[in-house]
Every structure is written in structure tokens, then in C-alpha cells.
Design a protein around this nucleic acid. Sequence first.
DNA 1: TGACAAACCACACATTTGTGTGGTATATCT
DNA 2: AGATATACCACACAAATGTGTGGTTTGTCA
Lengths: 201, 201
Amino acid sequence: MENKPYLTPKQEKVLNFIQKRIGERLPPTIREIGEELGFKSTGTVRDYLKALIQKGLVRRMNNKSRAIELTERVNFNKIPIIGTIMAGKPNLAYEEIQGYVDADDLFLGRLGFDDVFALRVKGDSMVDAGILDGDIAIIKKRPNAENNNIVAALLDNNEVTLKRLRSKAGKFHLEAANNNYPPIFEEFKVIGKLITVIRKY
Amino acid sequence: MENKPYLTPKQEKVLNFIQKRIGERLPPTIREIGEELGFKSTGTVRDYLKALIQKGLVRRMNNKSRAIELTERVNFNKIPIIGTIMAGKPNLAYEEIQGYVDADDLFLGRLGFDDVFALRVKGDSMVDAGILDGDIAIIKKRPNAENNNIVAALLDNNEVTLKRLRSKAGKFHLEAANNNYPPIFEEFKVIGKLITVIRKY
DNA sequence: TGACAAACCACACATTTGTGTGGTATATCT
DNA sequence: AGATATACCACACAAATGTGTGGTTTGTCA
């Protein structure tokens, strides 16, 4: 399944507005889109919709008011579940997206989208903190965190782990929640902070 | 906050249809409701909407197509989070509903509604299974379960606990996941099976 | 230069959709 | 008996909304 194709800035804006309105429960009419974006002609809006449909981002039903849908290619309000993260310097490059988790009001409150992702937990290094192999960890991206926070951290070998952040004499290190694992004093970079854990049986 | 007031069977049907359509993303038009329910006049549908609005279950915007909303009193696709459950014989009587969890596709798959609820976990009796104090346990109601399932069970003293179900020589008992707690051999009744655990930090 | 797409607008028109008025019939409660 | 609620229908009409045709301008690519 491919990802979102190239969009012009305005097309992006139109799409975002549609997303926003759908998120608020009621998809917009053509005229509502035009009004928001400052278009004086419904024809203009239809041109945009045509473009978005052609790019596979939007679906419509004929002659039905507000019948605008986003396709699966628009991962609206969804958080990617990642197996492996190849993390370059400034931004994460999601490599192995295993699926999506819907960012629902009650679990997370409506979040911004770009700053949250999910990790499938591997191994038992955090069992004593009640985080088991296979759990889904929801992470909020952040370049730093506080003492005792559980964080997703990038190690020197390009590996990502979930560990507890500890400060000792002003210096940070990582600790597992399992006596079988030694603390990590190597160089690392905090990617984000754990905000939620989900486990399915 | 009160609960759903009395509805006539037909009003119930209208409400359900609206719920269904909203769940499918696009609220219905007045004529669509009429068509579904077999009404030949739009006036009839408006009478029903008027009734539902008066009973505080529905909100509308004037002159806007499909602008039908459900109010908070209709807990659509939401699972009650329960503190204490007073469980009579056949049905649970939710006593202390602390809030609602949105039953989202990706966490639970679209579920039927009446057969799922959530418990806020108290105590540390399941820590070794990675279930901590304060976690939200999503339970699917069931009168029985299998060996090794974690279940919500009703004890003789009318208390509800989350424990692991064990069978030994054809006889079931409950086990904590914490050595400080002895197994429970008293009489108990299985209320439901644990399907998901959610923890927020 | 010509073709093409992006980015617009103006309108006319057809449908869809919401609104409003005015009915009928049945049952319940006072 | 009269008031009230449920449970419908038929229309007419107005507003909202989608469709379609035919433009203009600007820039890019070949």
C-alpha cells in the first residue's frame, strides 16, 4: 500500500480542512470548503476534489450532500505501530509500520498527529514496570524527558529501546525494569516519552 | 448526569439508525431516515426527531443537511469504566461509573456494546501478569472462561476481582499473579474475560 | 510555440434536503 | 368530554447543495 502522493500546498489545505471537519463529525459541503479556503466558485472546489479523488485520497458519492470520505491512504487520527525504527538525526524514518492505532479521545485525548507513534514492545526488559513482550507502547516524541520517565531511546547501534530514564549526579542513564538487565550508560538520545501502554489478550 | 430516558420502540429504532449511520461516518438525512423506517412523510421523521431532541438525546442545526448529532446521554460506542460493581444475579448493576472508554476499531474491533465494560484495577494482586494498580481492564462479559484466562469474578462477599482462572482436577479456582496473595478457593462466579489492558502515564 | 496542468471565476440548473402547514386515527389520562 | 401523546400522511415551498458548461491566467515542459 503506497503512501500519500505529492500534493500542492492548496490541495493539502483542502484535504486538511476535510479531515478536520470529518474529525468534528460532519463532512463539509462543497460550498463550505470554498468558503473556508476563500474560493468564490463551487467549480474551483470541485476541481480540487477531482484532483484529490484522482490521487486516491478521497472518495465521493454522487448527488449526496457531504458525502466525502477519506481513503485508507489518508491515515487520519491514526498512530503508526512500528516494529523497527531507523532513526536518523532530526526525524524518525518509519521503516516497518505494522499497522495503525486510532488515536481516540478517551485514550489519548485528541492529539496532534505528527508527534505520536506506537512501538510494539519486544523482550522482557521492562516486566517489572508491567510492560510485557507484545504490548503496544504509545510514545510522544520529545527530545528530552525527566528523571524516572519511561522513554523510547535511540542507542548508538541504531537500536531503539524502551527504558526508564534516570539521572545520577546530573548525568542521565537508562535502566531496565528487570534485574537481569544492567543499566545502560552508553551514549543515547531520547526520542520520546511513554504515555500509554495497551495490551490485548 | 442522567441516563437515557424512556423511549418508545419506534423512537428507539430511529435513534439506532442514526447511531448506525454516524458510526458509518455520514449522518442520515431526514428522508433517509424515513426510507429506512418505512415512513412516507418527512413530517413523520421530523416528529420523531423533535421527540428525541426534547428527550435530550439528539442535537440538530437548522437548515444544515445531515446535521444530526447525538448528545452525551447517548453513550454510543463507549464502554463504562466502573469502580465498584454491585452484581445482582442475572445482570450487573453498574454503580459507580467513572467515565467512558471509546470502543475503537483498532483497540477492540467494533464490538457489540452491552457485553463489554471496563474496570479500573485496584491493588497489586496481578502485578506479575503486568497489570498494575490504576490500569484500565476491558472485560467482555461471559458466564465462563477457560483455564488460564484472566477473568473478572464475583466473590461471595459481593466483591469483584481480576484474577487468573485455574482448573485443577476439574475444579476451578482463582489465582493472583503475586506471591503475597493466596489462591481463592471460595465460591465465585465468572463475570467476564479480560481482553485488553490500558495504562496511561 | 503548443500542450498541459494548476488555479481560479461566473452562472444556470437540477437535485437533494430541510421547513411548515394542515390534516387523520388511536389510545391514555383526568 | 377534553387534553395530551403517539403515530402517522400529503403537500408546497424554500434553502442548501451538487452538477455542468464555459471561460481566464499563469507557469512548466517538450
